[in-house]
Design a protein around this nucleic acid. Sequence first.
DNA 1: TCATTGCTACTACAATCGTAGTAGGTCTAC
DNA 2: GTAGACCTACTACGATTGTAGTAGCAATGA
Lengths: 134, 134
Amino acid sequence: MSQSKHQLTPTEWEIMEAVWRLLETEPSGEISVRDVVDRGVFEPAKAYTTVQTLMNTLQRKGVLKRRKVGLVNFYRPVFERREMVDRATSSLLDRLFEGSGLKLVNFMMDNSKLSGDEIEALQEMINRHREEEE
Amino acid sequence: MSQSKHQLTPTEWEIMEAVWRLLETEPSGEISVRDVVDRGVFEPAKAYTTVQTLMNTLQRKGVLKRRKVGLVNFYRPVFERREMVDRATSSLLDRLFEGSGLKLVNFMMDNSKLSGDEIEALQEMINRHREEEE
DNA sequence: TCATTGCTACTACAATCGTAGTAGGTCTAC
DNA sequence: GTAGACCTACTACGATTGTAGTAGCAATGA
């Protein structure tokens, strides 16, 4: 079936979001299943072994790297969140907007995904972007 | 598992894209499996029964409506493409950008999903949008 | 009339997803 | 030194996904 490479399912995203978030305050850059279970927020809660299975799947998919310290497995993300978001966004872009970011923005404007305030902020972004380009 | 409501898998999207496209030149607003198989473009090609199964799944999910004429089933989309794109986009927005369209646009600008030309076009869009608001 | 064509309904089946239980091995605190 | 606590590896299992085959029936054309 799919499994192509680093495409995540919604539940795997949930786990990864927790991993990235928790690692912000984790100087070692590594994290255990226990950390994710205890400090991640899941609604509804997930069993320890469920999280364990998911993290091992993520390891198999090459999204987490696993390292055994003593008896305990520690995991570290292979990619930054930004990279994964990029892939997911590109995938949506390719599938639904013929790869055109402009079409996506256009769609959002036409479908109220951007409020008036946000469009003002967007204008600011464009201005800043132009300055950076010079 | 998921099946929540009208969330499509990549392959189901492929079918629906073909259905919407073919219906543009189909005054009846209905289409058969045969139409999709013969006139849809799939890479690699899909067996007749594969398309049949997928279209029945889409019917079960409430995305296509089925009507038997004589012996043959005809299908019609329940939603316009725009509606489904809206759902998929909102889903990505919620999962990865905290529901903020602005964050998504920001991300795209920072990650070269928008070329310089496209940003100009975006500026045009904003201007037009402002005029419409007045 | 009867073989071919074409369609539907049903079935199959491996892979994946989401969730979790169980067995068995260390560590630790009494 | 032994009973919990805690962790890992393995297994399970129903649902879904993606792909397709088969049986059977209707229309059709020779």
